[in-house]
Amino acid sequence: MSDQEAKPSTEDLGDKKEGEYIKLKVIGQDSSEIHFKVKMTTHLKKLKESYCQRQGVPMNSLRFLFEGQRIADNHTPKELGMEEEDVIEVYQEQTGGHSTV
């Protein structure tokens, strides 16, 4: 019986991991920090939209990076291997420009 009891508790931990929340720091170019608590399985588009709304800027005017890689709207913290207190960097999107060649 103890084996049966242990097995469901392991499964519960697996389920808990799926719905687990982590805190992420979003740091802007001006070094301002906003902290977000997100589920591991939530699409990061929600975090990006919330950040842009707080900053009063359109979402397409900023780019969000985690460990140097651009974050897509459909990425989740779990897919990117994010952990508690990880940092997302935000930069002004640069458009235009010309070749110097």
Rank of each mutant, 00 (worst) to 15 (best):
T10H: 11
Q4E: 06
E20Q: 12
G28T: 00
D30G: 13
P8E: 00
D73S: 00
E67P: 04
Y51S: 01
L47R: 03
V38T: 12
K48R: 01
K7H: 13
G97A: 04
G14Y: 15
G19N: 12
G96Q: 01
A6V: 14
N74W: 07
E83D: 10
Q53S: 15
A72P: 07
K7T: 11
L62R: 15
E85H: 08
K39Q: 09
E85A: 12
S9D: 14
Q29D: 00
I34V: 12
E20V: 11
G19Y: 09
C52A: 01
C52F: 02
D86Y: 07
I34D: 01
K46W: 10
E49H: 04
Q55D: 09
G14E: 12
T76W: 04
E89D: 09
M59D: 15
E5R: 12
G28V: 04
S50E: 07
G97C: 03
Q94Y: 12
V87W: 06
E20D: 11
E11D: 10
C52E: 03
D73E: 03
Y21W: 11
E18R: 11
F66R: 02
G97K: 04
G97H: 00
Y21H: 15
Q69M: 01
V26G: 05
S31Y: 15
H35V: 09
K45F: 05
L80R: 02
Y51V: 06
F36D: 04
E89M: 09
L47S: 03
D12F: 10
T76A: 02
K25S: 09
L47F: 03
L24D: 02
K48D: 01
Q55S: 12
K17R: 13
E20R: 14
E33V: 09
L65K: 00
E93A: 08
K46C: 03
M59S: 07
G14R: 11
E18G: 14
V87R: 13
L80S: 02
E84H: 04
H75V: 07
K17M: 09
I27V: 10
N60G: 14
Q69L: 08
S32N: 12
K7S: 09
K78N: 14
H43T: 09
I34P: 04
M40L: 14
Y51Q: 03
T95D: 00
L44T: 01
E93I: 04
L47W: 02
